[in-house]
Amino acid sequence: MMRYTDFSAHDLLLLLQGLGVSVALFAATTLIGGVIGLGWALLRYYRVPLLAPLAALLAELLKNSPVLVQLFLVFFGLPVLLETDLTPVQAALITLSGNTAAFIYVIAVSAIESVGREQIETARVFGLTRWQTLRRVVAPQAAAFGFGPLAGLLINQLQVTSLISVIGVIDLTKVGAILNLRTLKPFIVWTVIGLLYYLMARLIAAACARVEARLRAHREWKGL
């Protein structure tokens, strides 16, 4: 029979542990998803046969299907398909990285296409290669254009990490569920959990706003 108890000092450590897991997974999946998503966008920029349409199709599937379904498919289905074992953390890492990559791909493609074609044509007239055009003309402007949508995406992906608790990852949401069951004080528990997510989201928004302002200032100073 479960015994209900009040909050203790140990609960603070449990909260910090859950917070650490959520932050670590968010950071890791953002980094991995960012690299993959930008890689897919480059395939489209260079119009690589077969690979560019394949990346577009994969991104379309990932961004238009529920993350929870993707999580179950990876955690329960992938081990059967590959005849291997996946820990809950590994499944969460794969799922959230892929989902983040899909949306970063969309943002990157939109940002690249926002650059005026006349600038790209002018760069080619001056003898710049596609890589030089990308690095010197397209990338600085695309980065400034894409950082606003990227900030919204990151905040959304932070909230999406709360879903990984359903497969047993001891993240911040899972810790909240544990404390709620033990103390039977849902209002206090979920208010604290919600505030922690809110504070993390505000930090992400503030950091992205500062970077975006610097990118825009740099672009204007370069006269691009």
Results as ranks from 00 to 15, higher is better:
74 V>F: 01
175 V>I: 10
10 H>Q: 12
138 V>D: 01
55 A>I: 00
168 G>D: 08
27 A>K: 10
207 A>I: 09
100 T>K: 01
175 V>H: 02
190 W>H: 05
113 E>Q: 14
93 L>F: 13
7 F>A: 06
136 R>H: 14
207 A>D: 10
160 V>T: 14
216 R>Q: 13
30 T>Y: 04
25 L>I: 07
9 A>S: 14
115 V>W: 01
97 S>Y: 02
121 E>I: 05
167 I>P: 01
215 L>M: 08
122 T>P: 06
168 G>V: 04
133 T>M: 03
185 K>I: 07
35 V>W: 11
60 E>V: 03
3 R>F: 09
140 P>K: 11
33 G>P: 00
202 R>D: 12
92 A>F: 05
39 G>R: 02
152 G>D: 14
221 W>E: 12
213 A>S: 14
144 A>Y: 01
31 L>Q: 15
163 L>S: 11
140 P>E: 09
146 G>D: 01
77 G>F: 12
145 F>C: 03
64 N>H: 12
133 T>S: 07
152 G>I: 03
46 Y>M: 06
1 M>H: 13
91 A>V: 04
152 G>A: 08
14 L>W: 12
39 G>C: 07
99 N>G: 11
185 K>E: 09
69 V>G: 08
222 K>L: 11
55 A>V: 00
73 L>S: 14
133 T>R: 02
203 L>G: 07
23 V>P: 00
112 I>M: 04
47 R>C: 08
39 G>H: 06
96 L>Y: 02
46 Y>N: 06
78 L>H: 07
41 A>V: 01
69 V>E: 09
219 R>K: 13
199 L>D: 14
186 P>L: 05
124 R>D: 05
49 P>K: 08
62 L>R: 01
190 W>F: 10
145 F>W: 11
95 T>A: 07
162 S>D: 10
58 L>V: 15
183 T>S: 09
101 A>F: 00
88 P>F: 04
10 H>I: 06
151 A>W: 06
157 Q>H: 13
160 V>G: 11
127 G>H: 10
77 G>Q: 11
96 L>D: 00
74 V>T: 02
138 V>Q: 03
52 A>D: 04
64 N>W: 12
108 A>T: 02
198 Y>H: 14
98 G>Y: 00
52 A>S: 10
188 I>C: 08
153 L>E: 02
182 R>H: 12
54 L>G: 09
56 A>P: 06
212 E>T: 09
65 S>C: 06
114 S>T: 03
170 I>G: 15
33 G>F: 00
213 A>K: 15
202 R>M: 10
86 L>Y: 14
88 P>K: 05
103 F>A: 03
217 A>V: 06
28 A>Q: 03
39 G>N: 09
131 W>M: 09
53 P>T: 09
45 Y>R: 08
198 Y>P: 05
119 Q>E: 08
216 R>N: 14
223 G>L: 06
18 G>C: 06
224 L>R: 15
155 I>S: 02
177 A>M: 11
